[in-house]
């Protein structure tokens, strides 16, 4: 049986961290993955010295997309915008601890895509 659904992933998908809307967000981004129909909205507060101070998200979708968003946001909280922009797909795969394979990689990378788009503006 696939280890794609290892306990930590299921836990993040069921009890996502930083879930909800940040009314005071400085950056928001809606991102969708048409094949799975995953959607996420991420909310960030960045500081004047270039730190990601607060993070949150809302969304719906498969375990991989929602767990990846929860885990990635947890890991970027408190880091610098530059560091987040330098993150690559391998970093997300490392966080998830699974190899999503060609069909699920878009689910896994949805939050990274959202972060990169919103922070590179």
């Amino acid at each position: 049986m696939s280890d794609m659904y290892r306990q930590q992933l299921l836990d993040h998908a069921r009890r996502p961290r930083h879930h909800g809307v940040l009314a005071e967000a400085t950056h928001t981004r809606h991102e969708a993955n048409p094949s799975c129909g995953d959607v996420i909205d991420i909310y960030l507060v960045t500081s004047s010295n270039g730190l990601v101070e607060q993070v949150s998200f809302t969304g719906q979708g498969c375990v991989i997309s929602q767990a990846a968003t929860s885990m990635l946001l947890e890991s970027v909280a408190g880091r610098s915008v530059a560091e987040v922009l330098a993150m690559c797909p391998e970093d997300v795969v490392g966080l998830l601890g699974i190899e999503p394979g060609p069909m699920r990689i878009n689910c896994a990378l949805l939050p990274l895509r959202a972060l990169h788009k919103v922070l590179s503006r």
């Binding site: 049986m1 696939s2 794609m4 799975c36 129909g37 979708g61 498969c62 375990v63 991989i64 699920r104």
Partner: peptide
């Protein structure tokens, strides 16, 4: 259960 998670477990 999201449909893609069903599909994944069935594919396995």
């Amino acid at each position: 259960v999201h449909s893609h998670d069903v599909a994944q477990l069935l594919a396995d």
